[in-house]
Design a protein around this nucleic acid. Structure first.
Length: 139
DNA sequence: GCCAACGTTGGC
DNA sequence: GCCAACGTTGGC
C-alpha cells in the first residue's frame, strides 16, 4: 500500500534565508523554529515530502518548491529540548511567484493554514491547495 | 511605522 | 489556574 505524501509550507524572511540561498546551498538545516505547533508539523514531515517555500516580509508569497531530505532531529540551537529541525533541499523555482494577495483572492485557498493562522511558520498544505497553487504559478 | 494576532511570562 | 503585560511575527 502506498501512502500519499503530505505537503507543507515553510516560511522564511528572505533577508534571513531566501530560496536563492537554498538553491546555492543545495541543502540546509531548517532550524530555529520556536513554536510548538510549527514544531509538531516539523515532526510530522517525512523524507520526500514536498514543501512550498514562502517568503514573508515585503511582497510575501510562494517562490519555490523544496523537499524534505532528512526527518526531524533535535534543534542544535535549542537547549530546552522542545524544538526540532529538519533538512530540506531545493526542487525548483516557480515559473511565477504566487503572492499572498493571489492566495487570499482565490476562494479555493481560503481554508489554508497560511491564511487562517498568519503567524504559523510551518504549516500543512492539502493536495487540493497544492495543486491550485502550482496551477497559479503557471507551472 | 502601525497594528492585529497570538504565544509566553509572571504575579496572584 | 487565571489573566494582564509584554514580546514577536508578519501583513499592510
Amino acid at each position: 500500500m502506498t501512502t500519499a505524501k503530505s505537503c507543507w509550507l515553510l516560511k522564511s524572511e528572505p533577508d534571513t534565508y531566501s530560496f536563492d540561498d537554498l538553491m546555492r546551498d543545495g541543502e540546509t538545516l531548517w532550524d530555529g523554529v520556536r513554536n510548538a505547533q510549527a514544531a509538531n508539523n516539523l515532526r510530522a514531515m517525512a523524507v520526500g515530502d514536498p514543501a512550498l517555500f514562502y517568503h514573508s516580509g515585503a511582497g510575501p508569497g510562494v517562490v519555490g518548491l523544496a523537499e524534505v531530505s532528512a526527518p526531524a532531529c533535535p534543534d542544535p540551537g535549542d537547549a530546552s529540548g522542545r524544538f526540532v529541525a529538519i533538512r530540506i533541499r531545493p526542487v525548483r523555482r516557480l515559473a511565477r511567484p504566487v503572492s499572498l494577495a493571489d492566495i487570499k483572492a482565490q476562494p479555493g485557498l481560503a481554508g489554508m493554514a497560511l491564511v487562517r493562522q498568519g503567524r504559523l511558520s510551518v504549516s500543512p498544505v492539502s493536495a487540493e491547495e497544492w495543486a491550485l497553487i502550482l496551477q497559479m504559478a503557471g507551472t
